[in-house]
């Protein structure tokens, strides 16, 4: 507990250097060299080639849409949950973590069964004499898969930052004459910024870089940037190109990290 115990941090520092810093250095090394080990920027500029640029564009678009949908679904939910009794805190977190105990691939696969032309949802819709859904193997299904998988990562930070707002701060705004809308815009929303930033980061990055969801729900028709990188490593074994493209992805990741460092200094928007 005192400064003489500093050596206690050694195992973790060593671990971080070996398994976090050095591996990122490896990506930089591979990304900036070719097969002969000579310096090159080709692996990075490869992102501009028609196929890669399109994959990046599609990924960016789909992940932005997913993040937005997640945010719009999660914010009202988090507000409702945050105003419930605080002793239910752990229970609320459990509800959103529990699905992770069912394998992520299987859960996503189950959406095929739900969404298919003769799937469960369409059976229900037909029974209700409603028009059927035709979204399987479309970008819409990919967005749905992303929203489904990453929604908890939006809800939990939002819930945590909203639950931390003192009820009396909201009461004070009302007391000073603010109506519900003004209170929301000027008080609740700004105070939840750490949660919003953290939630966006936790959804946007995995959505941008996923390579499984598109394969399972998009019918393999759309190639996302994650699919491209995965193939460079597992099939074509062009690690240099794969690393170069990863470095492009890391630009977005770094932007996100900087944003969270600015807006969430104390880790108030953390998930747990």
């Amino acid at each position: 507990m005192t400064s003489k115990n500093k050596w206690l941090s050694t195992p973790y520092i060593v671990w971080s250097v070996v398994f976090i810093i050095v591996p990122l250095g490896m990506i930089l090394y591979y990304g900036l060299t070719d097969a002969t080990g000579a310096f090159t920027l080709d692996n990075i500029t490869a992102i501009a080639s028609a196929g890669h640029a399109k994959a990046l564009r599609v990924s960016l678009f789909l992940s932005l849409v997913s993040t937005l949908v997640c945010f719009l679904l999660a914010y009202p939910l988090a507000m409702i949950l945050a105003r419930m009794q605080t002793k239910r805190h752990n229970f609320i977190i459990l509800i959103f973590i529990l699905p992770m105990w069912m394998n992520f691939l299987l859960r996503t696969l189950a959406w095929q069964t739900l969404l298919e032309k003769n799937g469960v949802i369409n059976h229900v819709l037909t029974f209700l004499h409603l028009p059927t859904l035709k979204i399987i193997n479309t970008p819409a299904a990919i967005v749905l898969g992303m929203v489904y998988n990453f929604l908890p990562f939006m809800v939990l930070p939002l819930y945590n930052s909203l639950a931390k707002i003192d009820v009396n701060v909201i009461n004070a705004a009302r007391d000073l004459g603010a109506n519900h809308f003004y209170t929301f815009i000027r008080i609740i929303l700004p105070l939840s910024v750490p949660g919003i930033i953290s939630g966006i980061t936790m959804v946007f990055i995995p959505a941008l870089t996923t390579f499984v969801i598109s394969a399972l729900l998009g019918g393999g028709k759309l190639l996302l940037i994650g699919d491209v990188i995965e193939q460079e490593f597992t099939r074509t074994s062009n690690w240099h190109l794969g690393s170069g493209l990863s470095m492009v992805l890391m630009i977005f990741i770094v932007i996100n990290m900087i944003l969270s460092a600015i807006f969430d200094k104390d880790g108030e928007g953390s998930m747990l």
Partner: peptide, 17 residues
Amino acid sequence: PPNKRQLNTVFQKYALF
């Protein structure tokens, strides 16, 4: 509602923004 009342409150733990 509170925002339409001609009274103002000083809260226990200040509740500053």
